[in-house]
Amino acid sequence: MTVQELYAEVSPIAVEVLQIPHFDSSVTMNSTPEWDSLSHVQLLSALERKFSIEISADEAFKLTSAEKLVRYLHETLKGKQ
């Protein structure tokens, strides 16, 4: 799956969990008050279910933007293949 394809998969989930109008590469935790501590946990859990992966607690605190999150998923899913 390409990064672009991943965005298409991740966006509807993030939009629903974070209750924001769109989720693209411009979205960061810093610029999105809806992306708070509890919704971060909910978002990661939803993505784990979607892609049948486990997001490492050692990495979870670094995933503070759409770009970092999708890049992380891209690498993780590549490693899974």
């Binding site: 971060h40 607690a57 050692d58 990495e59 979870a60 605190f61 995933l63 503070t64």
Partner: peptide
Amino acid sequence: VDPKASLRSFWAL
């Protein structure tokens, strides 16, 4: 760490 991102990683940190 960023407080908004740290909850899930609390014990790992």
